[in-house]
Nucleic acid binder design. Structure first.
Length: 253
DNA sequence: ATGTCACAGTCCCTGTGA
């Protein structure tokens, strides 16, 4: 089973890239973030033509998350079941694995109300994972907008006082891990940076100025069945790329 | 700090968000 997560920064703008990537990589499950579409605009038929079922939680101009699967798609849930109007979380069961696609709030700045929203959002995700069915494998993937450690940031000194690297954000990830989850890409690649996002500005990609903020958390039993995890940097190159690259996990199940 | 994108609403530029 192959599972990928990709923040596409508008599925409308990225459709040609997404379609060709699916044809090339053939993942069983693809988690999308920032579709920036309403459910009415989501290309269900185009995905179906490629052999995939979809569940989308769309909003319109901003946010929007989806799960694309060719191994079944059941028990779909949207959001946390509270009054949060932002479409940032969708869950489904695919091939017997509980899967979540997450678009964690950016935070904007440490003194911005959106940063408080980000920490509250991560705490709600932890609470959801703390009461999950431990009999079932789980994959929690998405754009976490947090670099778990300094190895995940091209220059920690450039991020002093900024979001994505602050202690409370990293502690929020530790709390998620404490529910029995592991950062798959890092566990299989202990030393490589594995950046997944590069700013469109400043020629960041060619300069190697990246962050690893797109993560695949898996339960410990699933980690034992994992064979590989990598970032597809090729998808960040070429014509009209997203500013994020897909992150892939491969499992012998 | 910012050399770019993508979006929606004024339409072919501007403000917002990342």
């Amino acid at each position: 089973m192959n599972v990928a997560t990709w923040n596409v920064n508008s599925l409308t703008a990225r459709w040609p890239r997404v379609e060709s990537w699916l044809l090339e990589k053939n993942p069983d499950v693809l988690l999308l973030q920032e579709t920036k579409q309403t459910d009415a605009k989501f290309p269900f038929a185009a995905f179906a033509a490629l052999g995939y079922e979809c569940a989308h939680y769309g909003q319109g101009q901003w946010n929007g998350v989806a799960i694309i699967s060719r191994v079944g798609l059941e028990e779909v849930t949207r959001g946390f079941g509270d009054d949060d109007p932002e479409a940032r979380l969708i869950g489904a069961t695919c091939g017997g694995v509980r899967v979540l696609s997450c678009y964690v709030p950016n935070g904007r700045a440490l003194d911005n109300p959106h940063y408080v929203y980000k920490l509250e959002w991560l705490a709600k995700l932890r609470d959801l994972l703390a009461v999950r069915d431990l009999e079932k494998h789980v994959i929690v993937g998405g754009d976490f907008n947090v670099a778990p450690t300094d190895l995940d940031c091209y220059d920690p000194s450039a991020f002093e006082g900024a979001t994505h690297v602050s202690a409370p954000e990293r502690e929020a990830l530790r709390a998620i891990e404490a529910t029995g989850l592991i950062d798959l890409t890092r566990s299989l690649n202990p030393d490589a940076p594995c950046y997944s996002w590069w700013d469109y500005r400043n020629g960041s990609f060619r300069r190697g100025w990246g962050l690893r903020i797109d993560l695949l958390y898996v339960d410990l039993a699933l980690r034992a069945k994992a064979t590989a995890s990598y970032v597809d940097r090729e998808a960040r190159k070429g014509e009209r790329p997203s500013d994020h690259a897909p992150v892939v996990g491969e499992f012998s199940i």
